[in-house]
Each structure stands twice: as structure tokens, then as C-alpha cells.
């Protein structure tokens, strides 16, 4: 097999697996049962989404997706921290 074919199949399958992982995380967000489960699902969704973007960057051969992945990682961190604080205090800032 040529290098391009190996990459097309390998990276395509890897991205499909990460999207499936995101779907499972989304199921956990919808299913609950408690608020902390939903926040955990959102954290997993962010993480796998970020990894999928990194793999997409390899598939297109473009270095631009690195910044996107970095921003998604930071937003996911801030979102989960804010939500976890919300679960304790009922308000984010005080």
C-alpha cells in the first residue's frame, strides 16, 4: 500500500473512533442521571473533540488545526471548572 492510502485509512478510522467516543459522551450528557454525570460527559466530549481535531489536522496536512485544538482544550477546561463550581455553590462567581 502506498503511504497516502495507509494514512487515509488509518487516520480516517481513528477519527471515526473519536467521533464515536464523542457520541457516547453526548449520550451520557443526555442520559444523566445526575448533574455531575452530565458535566463529566461534557468534559469527555471536549477531550475527544480536541483529539479528533488533531487527527483532522493530520488528515488535511494543515498546521492550522493545532491552534483550534489548543483553544478547544482551554475552553473545555474553563467550562468544566466553572460547571463544577456551579454544582457546589449554585453560582459561578462570588
Amino acid at each position: 500500500m502506498s503511504a497516502a492510502l495507509v494514512l487515509a485509512y488509518g487516520l480516517g478510522l481513528a477519527q471515526a473512533m473519536l467521533v464515536l467516543a464523542m457520541a457516547i459522551a453526548a449520550w451520557r450528557i443526555l442520559r444523566g442521571p445526575r448533574a455531575q454525570d452530565r458535566v463529566l460527559g461534557l468534559d469527555t466530549l471536549y477531550l475527544n473533540g480536541m483529539l479528533a481535531i488533531v487527527v483532522h489536522g493530520m488528515r488535511t496536512g494543515s498546521g492550522l488545526y493545532f491552534e483550534a485544538a489548543l483553544v478547544i482544550g482551554m475552553l473545555g477546561f474553563a467550562a468544566t471548572v466553572a460547571l463544577a463550581k456551579f454544582l457546589v455553590h449554585g453560582e459561578v462567581i462570588r
Binding site: 481513528a14 473512533m17 467516543a21 457516547i24 449520550w27 483529539l51 487527527v55 493530520m58
Partner: peptide, 15 residues
């Protein structure tokens, strides 16, 4: 990439 995606998927299945 496949190994890493597989491990992440196993982690998600744990949910």
C-alpha cells in the same frame, strides 16, 4: 493514531 483513538474510545465506553 489508531491506538490512541482506540484507547480514548475504550475510555468513553467506560462512561
Amino acid at each position: 493514531a489508531l491506538a490512541g483513538a482506540g484507547i480514548s474510545l475504550v475510555g468513553a465506553v467506560g462512561l
